[in-house]
């Protein structure tokens, strides 16, 4: 077992009102899992992901990673952000080298590692380019390269494809699936938050469905479809319909 989410609840306070965002979430993440968390908007999906990587503390409950409580600076867990979150004053290589420095990787070593993952996401030739000059899809490739460069065991992604166009996101999804299936490359397991059910059925081997606020686990489905998956397959649509019916 890689990670365990145990009895996680979260309440927000704003203007004296308490809003419960998450209510007693439990599930565990196994090696080679590709988990998609889906649910209606405002159900706390993103909050849950932020708790899993340690950016927020749960009001009660805990997140264990390999049996230890999670902390933000655990290099074995990396995050990809919806709006890329690249530093505008650092070029592609420097953006990646920045996150290698806390791992004591500097100079030539860091550069080589950055180069390796820039190649892996298909950005060779853009090493010295600043984020401003990149298209949305290319920015998110940098986001992936940055997260992969720390060679995480668990990769967490918050709607990584939602600000990209359909064609770009399809290419990136396939590349990501290849990296995940490649045992020589990180990551071992992926948790992805999405509101796109087709995307979830296409990528995940497990889909966790949250209810409207406060978010509770409604279902934890294992998607038994073979890979590569075919969106035109009637079986594929049966799964999409099933997830839809559980959300609504």
């Amino acid at each position: 077992m890689l990670a365990e989410i145990k009895n996680v609840s979260k309440t927000h306070e704003s203007n004296g009102n308490t809003i419960q965002a998450l209510d007693n979430i439990n599930f565990s993440v196994e090696d080679n899992d590709f988990i998609c968390i889906v649910g209606p908007s405002g159900c706390g999906k993103s909050t849950l992901l932020r708790i899993i990587v340690g950016l927020e503390r749960p009001t009660s409950g805990e997140v264990l990673f390999k049996g230890e409580p999670i902390s933000t600076d655990n290099p074995k867990v990396a995050m990809v952000f919806q709006n890329f979150a690249l530093f505008p004053w650092l070029n592609v290589t420097e953006n990646i080298e920045l996150v290698l420095e806390p791992l004591e990787l500097r100079g030539k070593k860091a550069e080589n590692k950055a180069c390796k993952y820039i190649k892996a996401v298909g950005l060779d030739g853009f090493e010295k380019v600043y984020p401003r000059e990149l298209s949305g899809g290319m920015k998110q490739r940098v986001g992936f390269a940055r997260a992969l460069a720390v060679e995480p065991v668990l990769l967490c992604m918050d709607e990584p494809f939602s600000s990209l166009d359909a064609l770009t996101s399809q290419n990136l999804k396939d590349e990501l699936l290849m990296l995940w299936a490649d045992t020589s490359m990180p990551p071992d397991a992926v948790i992805m938050v999405t509101h796109n059910i087709e995307e979830a059925v296409y990528m995940a081997n497990r889909i966790i469905i949250l209810s409207p606020r406060p978010g509770k686990v409604v279902a934890d489905l294992r998607i038994g479809l073979e890979r590569p998956r075919n969106r035109k397959d009637p079986e594929f649509y049966r799964w999409v319909d099933k997830v839809y019916s559980l959300i609504v």
């Binding site: 933000t72 600076d73 990396a78 709006n83 979150a85 996150v99």
Partner: peptide, 29 residues
Amino acid sequence: IPGDMENVAASFGIKGKLYWKKVILPAMF
């Protein structure tokens, strides 16, 4: 400074001198 930038710094363990040099000071520039 966008919240996501802080999140990147936090989740990749960018702290202390590195955080000031590469994140805060450039962002304040």
